[in-house]
Design a protein around this nucleic acid. Structure first.
Lengths: 334, 334
DNA sequence: CTGAAAGCGCTTACAG
DNA sequence: CTGAAAGCGCTTACAG
């Protein structure tokens, strides 16, 4: 492969000049520029990114740390990140953390050594101190689904609380007389917010009891198992607000196994709006986050932080959209 | 951050020596080694990967080019790739190609400039010439789901033909009297092999006609739409072998919308064995590939190629496993 | 507007 | 077993 030196020689200029036309930085005579361009063409020259990285401290590479790419929510988000990053000239490194702090930290060390330009974190176990520490290292950061108080980096999130309120209100409107909730891991702020909204929405009702809430892991089986436990305790439940779509799909399965019809016997509402939710039988009512767009926005925000002289952390709170489908569509009770 | 120079100074040796203990290469006196280790500890020294890459031509980074990370089949595979790569000390760059040759080529150019150590390609549009060209660039390569004739690189694949045969045989055994097939894009060898197996399995039957085959894109909607067309032409179909699970999930949906019961009216069998297939209603019978393991194997094979002096391309053909579930379980006809 | 030179932080023959 | 030196291929002040 040709180097910048070869180009300089062929064009009869110095490597500095070639570097200038390559990076469109500083002044360069139009005529000289043309000569250099021509030499680049002739030699099929492609600048070496690694050398560039070492000399310039920039690698045009970002990392996306997420719990598990196998989770459709995160793969949709990853697609958004990757598409936007590529559009902007960045390459993205994929890091599965399984929400384990240790894996995240190990990754961050590796990434720093690689002169990664910035990191998007959609994993929740990193403490505020960890994040502050990264700030000291000057490494641009965007976190997903964090509380906005965190002023050390940009955050992109959804209004989980309002979305969940809407979901529960909808179940009430549909005539549900005893609504349960299956919530995700309470280390996740998103899970906490959704649960809080549920509690505040239903605690005024006479039928309410804390035992209507059941924990579940944010996975397919999580929902399937949790719903069985929930119905064992409260066989008369006729509506369930589930903490995320993946669990909700498991809930549909669990209810089916228990012989309950959805929505006739039990109405089910999820959260997230993953693509799959429109393919279940029955189709899943859900609170849809703009998942792909959140990924795109994260990539855009991060690169802006990278490329601007002064990092300007900002908070984006997006609004989810309630989507009514057949898993909750029932005739009003007589 | 401390550099190798700082370590050398503190330990009272040359940078060459530090480099030797870092890389465990060449001889180094035990005592000297200890001094160096101590200096490294004291300074919290971490070698700079970029400098290392430039000097040594190795970056401990590989790339995984796939059609779309949003497809559960590929996200499971990506998880396998990433887990194994990390275990082996590599980092992985994610590249979505949408099966567009242009995107793949652009990516490959970018990756070469980044001194990527090797590439795993699970995308099918790259021609044999393209692959050969990469071979000339000395870049280690592993391709997924290619025909084994390709001797320029390692290939990892599944016995699609046998798996599909088994699927169709099972439908026949279940008493299906008219079996249709929804096939994926014929540019994909996997789709072709599965279709071929279907044809060869059924063409001896009196009910067979080529119009029992219907094309569909390897996506949820693909199956949903294709099954409607298929049943319009052949309302009496009572079994369908679907080219992959994602389409099969769409088929379940489509049949439900048409008011056909699965498996009572129509038995449905998919292919791939994605996690979701066990969560559908009814659960999907499928031919399961060891998806995660294929990803792991790809990463392992690639790194072996990278680290061994002479690349030893090899072909792995794995056997799929037939999994019978309720989407095909019917009482034999009287 | 352009060039010479230092420097980014390592690795790798080559001497000794 | 160890060190001096060249080199990887760029970028970036600094002069001019």
């Amino acid at each position: 492969m040709a180097t910048i030196r070869d180009v300089a020689k062929l064009a009869g200029v110095s490597v500095a000049t070639v570097s200038r036309v390559l990076n469109k930085t500083g002044y360069v005579n139009v005529e000289t520029g043309r000569k250099v361009e021509k030499a680049i063409q002739q030699l099929q020259y492609e600048p070496n990114s690694v050398a560039r990285g070492l000399a310039g401290k920039r690698t045009s590479t970002i990392a996306f740390i997420l719990p598990d790419i196998t989770n459709p929510f995160f793969s949709e988000m990853a697609r958004g990140v990757e598409d936007k990053a590529r559009e902007l000239g960045y390459t993205v490194i994929l890091c599965n953390s399984d929400d384990q702090g240790q894996k995240e930290k190990t990754y961050i060390e590796v990434l720093k050594k690689k002169y990664i330009d910035g990191i998007i974190i959609a994993s929740q176990t990193l403490s505020s101190e960890d994040i502050q520490k990264m700030q000291q290292d000057q490494i641009p950061l965007v976190v997903m689904d964090r509380a906005p108080e965190n002023q050390h980096c940009s955050v992109i999130r959804c209004n989980n609380y309002m979305g969940a309120k809407e979901a529960v209100a909808h179940l009430v409107e549909q005539g549900c007389c005893k609504i349960g909730h299956i919530y995700g891991p309470q280390e996740l702020i998103t899970a906490r917010e959704r649960m809080l909204a549920y509690e505040e929405s239903v605690q005024g009702f006479s039928w309410y009891s804390p035992s209507l809430m059941e924990p579940g892991y944010f996975q397919l089986n999580g929902g399937q198992e949790a719903v069985k436990e929930l119905l064992r305790r409260h066989p008369d439940i006729d509506g369930i607000f589930v903490g995320n779509d993946l669990m909700a799909i498991g809930v549909l399965k669990g209810l089916n196994q228990l012989g309950r019809r959805v929505p006739e016997d039990v109405a089910v509402c999820g959260f997230d709006g993953i693509a799959l939710a429109s393919m279940t039988i029955p189709e899943l009512t859900t609170v849809a986050q703009p998942i792909y767009e959140m990924g795109e926005l994260a990539a855009l925000t991060l690169t802006q932080q990278i490329e601007s002289t002064k990092p300007l952390p900002s908070v984006f709170e997006l609004e989810p959209i309630f989507i009514e489908r057949s898993s909750t569509r029932r005739e009003p009770l007589a």
